[in-house]
């Protein structure tokens, strides 16, 4: 079970790193008008360099945590902080989707020209998809921390 959790942490981390890499590719193709061909996954990541840095940071925190293991204080710390950041990014994207819907609604009510808003695509962003396992990791790291302070013996590996 514990090895599965560690693998889960590592894979979530790798997912974020992949997202960062795709985001950089997306940025390069947009900023420098470079033709990199059609990569379907690019539709699910932002083309913002700040986004790339954020997902890379979260990915590295998870990978380090998975590598050290959640029973190690250093490992648990990076999983916890990675989980907090990933959760924040998850809710931020939800807020952005909400804001997008509200914006279209306001403009439409005011009789202004309102562009189309693809809700499904906004919801299928990497930060939301990977945010779900990250939420689980956050809850898991809090549970491990609580057990650690109760001096139970059955936490982590």
């Amino acid at each position: 079970m514990k090895i599965i959790i560690r693998l889960g942490i590592l894979f979530t981390g790798l997912g974020y790193i992949l997202m960062a890499f795709l985001s950089v590719l997306n940025w390069i193709s947009t900023a420098f008008s470079v033709n990199i061909g059609y990569i379907p996954l690019l539709d699910y990541v932002s083309n913002d360099l700040g986004y790339a840095l954020s997902t890379f940071t979260i990915g590295m925190l998870f990978i380090y945590g998975g590598w050290k293991g959640p029973s190690d204080v250093k490992g648990l710390s990076t999983i916890l902080v990675g989980g907090i950041l990933a959760t924040a990014l998850f809710f931020l994207q939800l807020l952005i989707v909400g804001a997008g819907i509200a914006d279209v609604f306001i403009l439409a009510v005011a009789g202004e020209e309102a562009g189309e808003y693809d809700i499904l695509r906004s919801l299928l962003q990497g930060s939301i998809l990977l945010g779900l396992p990250a939420l689980g990791l956050l809850a898991y790291s809090i549970t491990v921390f609580k057990k650690m302070n109760r001096k139970d013996t059955g936490y982590g590996d």
Binding site: G50, L53, S54, T57, L61, Y64, V81
Partner: peptide, 8 residues
């Protein structure tokens, strides 16, 4: 991690 976390 400190500076990347801060930038994030």
């Amino acid at each position: 991690f400190g500076i990347p976390v801060m930038l994030t």
